[in-house]
Design a protein around this nucleic acid. Structure first.
Lengths: 180, 180
DNA sequence: GATCACATGTAAGAAGTTACATGATTCT
DNA sequence: AGAATCATGTAACTTCTTACATGTGATC
């Protein structure tokens, strides 16, 4: 029943629309906050909202009051279900290796949407996959670093350090969830 | 004269083709090494190689010997020029905020293609922009963390920590280049 | 009155995804 | 002989980018 094709931006929108917002509000979020990684271009956001509306995952209504006309979007029950299904997916090795940003994005919505219990489970899965991946990266480094140019070697080190930093974060976050 | 439209994958290919490789070789690199972040799908790689060849940035020749026929690609002088122009761009705040992966990718090719002097300058620019961005993130955190749900706050912390980790890396890398 | 911020859209094109398709060679 | 791997490609579809377009309300 779920398994619609929703692009990453679609999930970002579903997550942010926990409170009703207009396309313009969303653009400002993408322009002014650390959500900058997502495009604030109208050519991305308005069509994405229309797609979600076509699938009945959000519903937009023109707001009457307050001067300018603007279309306020709200998540429907179906939309909330799609978001939950996305958030509830297990953490795979492939996610860690190729879609790390998605994992953090999912986590950022998790407390509000699925509750702290699920966020804790997610973090433990993440920690385990990160740990395994870091080991793999170290092995790869050991096997190859001698034959790499200096900047390539340093770039690989930066990738490893960045995964290690996220691993430390995940452990701290697990502690934060244990404390309640 | 440069300023052709080359997608990220195009630059990855130009960088890797410092040594002659086939499309299949490239796919294996993307499948088996930390370059996994790039797609190993034939529907991405073969068309990308053809585009580069159409622009005369690479040249592919069918290798005769050794059983199977395979098309080995080499970078042309024009291709090397495009790669250098891309690598030589200054590090901007926008790069740091929205295209961090590109910056690391560029750095990984820099030593071989532009030499250590340029790599050192790049690192100093990167360190400066990262430092400024980390300050901005801290300010944003201070201003907003009280009104965020726990998982959102933790996700933001992870972003900040990851930039801080890269900042520390950049300082270490600068030292490595000073030592020669 | 002009300019800026608000607010929403469309069109053309680039590039990636998934899935399918094909054939050669090597291995068991 | 059959399976796995090598090796290259295409087609349909989705989504994003860039650029253009339009109009309103608020501010100087």
């Amino acid at each position: 029943m779920p398994a619609r094709n929703i692009a990453r931006l679609g999930y970002v929108l579903l997550g942010l629309l926990q409170q009703p917002l207009s396309g313009y509000d969303l653009r400002k979020l993408f322009a002014d906050t650390p959500l900058k990684v997502y495009s604030d271009s109208p050519g991305a956001i308005y069509p994405a909202l229309r797609r979600l509306e076509r699938e009945a995952l959000v519903r937009g209504e023109v707001e009457k009051r307050s001067g300018r006309r603007r279309r306020l979007y709200r998540v429907t029950a179906a939309g909330a279900g799609e978001l939950k299904a996305w958030l509830a997916q297990p953490v795979t090795r492939d996610d860690v290796e190729r879609r790390l940003d998605d994992l953090l994005l999912r986590f950022s919505f998790m407390d509000e949407v699925l509750g702290p219990g699920h966020a804790g489970r997610f973090l433990r899965q993440l920690e385990s996959e990160l740990d395994a991946h870091v080991r793999g990266l170290h092995a790869y480094y050991q096997a190859t670093h001698r034959s790499m140019p200096r900047s390539g070697r340093l770039a690989l080190q930066s990738g490893i350090m960045s995964y290690e930093s996220l691993l430390r974060w995940s452990r701290r976050a697990i502690m934060a969830y244990k404390k309640g």
